[in-house]
């Protein structure tokens, strides 16, 4: 199957946030109690109940002033740090369409995907299970558009064959963010500005420490029964020894 992807054309986003609510509606996610912190942007970051959100970015002044809107979500990496780092087989995985799906039943609540993600996306819900945008894999598998894409009034959010979306964006003169990084993102931006204008990393990459895990430890097959030990080792590698014991103690309570 051809790899599917999102293309997010920032020039077309009006920040109506239909995407934000349509996602909650389809996925039946509750609202978070919020306060205004001096911005329209709310909640201020992704939460276990918020799989995609609009970032409001004000820059410059006078005639150079710009107000840009960026749909933030899981970018569905081809080379996905979260999948790489996940010690529990099948908890995080690439779907047939190339999206990054997850199976909460297999999630062991280790939190490592949080560290493995270059974009600070995965969140843990009240049951301490991973949660994030899964590209509405239930809808996509049944031939529907993801809920956010369907709702988007201005076609700022598009979903389809990755190659075709890239070709179309380039044909219209847009700069594509994420075409090749991390083996190609499954949610790319067609930017009307530079990555810096949108506070996006120029060259996103998986934290270096992850490679130790992927290339050295994971191949040793420390999974299943050994998963927790492996996870602990990763934690040691990425965070350091100090919280190691605390972590085990916490787990002991469950």
């Amino acid at each position: 199957m051809a790899r599917k992807a999102f293309m997010i054309d920032t020039s077309r986003c009006t920040a109506c946030r239909g995407c934000q609510v349509a996602c909650k509606q389809w996925n039946k996610l509750p609202a978070d109690a919020e306060v205004n912190r001096g911005s329209y942007e709310n909640p201020p970051q992704l939460t276990p109940h918020l799989y995609n959100k609009i970032e409001f970015i004000e820059k410059g002044e006078g005639k150079d002033f710009t107000w840009r809107f960026l749909n933030q979500r899981c970018l569905q990496c081809g080379d996905a740090g979260c999948i790489k780092v996940c010690p529990s087989a099948g908890a995080l995985f690439h779907t047939e369409e190339g999206l990054v799906g997850y199976d909460q039943d297999k999630c062991i609540s280790c939190n490592y995907c949080v560290n493995g993600c270059p974009f600070d996306v995965p969140r843990y819900d009240a049951n301490n299970k991973v949660t994030k945008c899964h590209g509405c894999m239930d809808r996509v598998a049944n031939g529907l558009q993801p809920a956010c894409v369907k709702a988007c009034p201005t076609a700022s959010l598009q979903f389809g064959d990755r190659d075709k979306l890239i070709a179309a964006a380039k044909a219209s003169g847009k700069q594509v963010y994420g075409e090749t990084a991390l083996s190609g993102l499954g949610a790319m931006y067609a930017l009307d500005g530079s990555p810096q204008d949108y506070n996006l990393a120029e060259n996103p990459s998986i934290p270096q420490s992850i490679f130790l895990w992927k290339d050295v430890i994971k191949p040793l097959g420390i999974l299943g029964f050994w998963g927790a030990v492996g996870a602990a080792m990763l934690h040691y590698v990425t965070v350091g020894p100090k919280q190691l014991e605390d972590d085990f103690e916490d787990k002991g309570g469950e």
């Binding site: 109506c16 946030r17 239909g18 934000q20 609510v21 349509a22 509606q25 389809w26 809920a147 369907k150 709702a151 988007c152 009034p153």
Partner: peptide
């Protein structure tokens, strides 16, 4: 159990803003 845009509606063609998308609530 669900509310979403009517894809055949000539104006919105299945799309919705945040208010319309919240009809369920």
């Amino acid at each position: 159990i669900n509310t979403e845009g009517d894809p055949d509606h000539p104006i919105n063609r299945g799309t919705l803003c945040s208010k319309g998308a919240a009809l369920y609530q």
